[in-house]
Computed example of a mutant assay.
Amino acid sequence: MPAKSKAQQMAAGAALAAKRGEKKKKNELKGASKSMVKSMSEKELHKMASTKRKGKAEHASKS
């Protein structure tokens, strides 16, 4: 599942780094990153984090 916005792609990247132990500990994450670590596999996070940013909105629309 590719990211729909830049913010979602960046949150997935932070969650992936935490899951791999490269960055912040899981309990230091906030918002979407925190829930992504718990609910998504490393493979899913990688796929979302590797989405190209070109042409993406800053934030996904709520509809």
Rank of each mutant, 00 (worst) to 15 (best):
M1S: 15
M1Q: 13
A3E: 09
A3T: 08
A3H: 10
K4D: 12
S5I: 06
S5Y: 07
S5P: 08
K6P: 04
K6M: 12
K6R: 14
K6C: 12
A7E: 14
A7D: 12
Q8M: 14
Q9T: 11
M10W: 04
A11P: 00
A11D: 07
A11V: 11
A12R: 03
A12S: 13
A12G: 10
A12F: 03
G13S: 07
G13W: 00
A14P: 04
A14S: 06
A14Y: 02
A14M: 15
A14C: 08
A14V: 08
L16R: 01
L16P: 02
L16M: 08
A17E: 09
A18P: 05
A18F: 04
K19W: 05
K19T: 00
K19S: 08
G21A: 03
G21L: 00
G21P: 03
G21R: 01
E22S: 05
E22K: 06
E22C: 00
K23R: 12
K23C: 06
K23S: 02
K23M: 04
K23H: 03
K24D: 03
K25I: 02
K25H: 03
K25V: 06
N27R: 04
N27T: 10
N27P: 04
N27Q: 13
E28Y: 10
E28H: 11
E28I: 04
L29Q: 07
K30E: 09
K30M: 10
K30Y: 13
K30F: 13
G31Y: 11
G31W: 05
A32H: 10
S33E: 04
S33K: 06
S33I: 00
S33P: 01
K34V: 07
K34P: 07
S35R: 15
M36I: 06
M36L: 12
V37W: 01
V37P: 06
V37F: 00
V37R: 00
V37E: 01
K38M: 07
K38G: 07
K38A: 15
K38S: 12
K38H: 08
S39A: 09
M40R: 02
M40V: 01
M40W: 03
S41Y: 00
S41W: 02
E42Q: 08
E42A: 13
E42F: 04
K43D: 13
K43M: 01
K43E: 15
K43W: 08
K43R: 02
E44D: 13
E44A: 14
E44S: 08
E44C: 01
E44I: 05
L45V: 05
L45I: 01
L45P: 00
L45H: 02
H46D: 08
H46N: 11
H46F: 15
H46L: 15
M48V: 10
M48I: 12
M48E: 02
M48C: 02
A49H: 01
A49V: 03
A49S: 08
S50M: 05
T51P: 06
T51E: 05
K52F: 11
K52Q: 13
R53K: 15
R53A: 15
R53P: 05
R53T: 13
K54C: 09
K54Q: 14
G55I: 06
G55A: 12
K56P: 03
K56E: 10
E58F: 06
E58N: 13
H59I: 08
H59K: 12
H59S: 07
A60W: 05
A60L: 11
S61A: 11
S61W: 02
S61T: 09
S61C: 06
S61E: 12
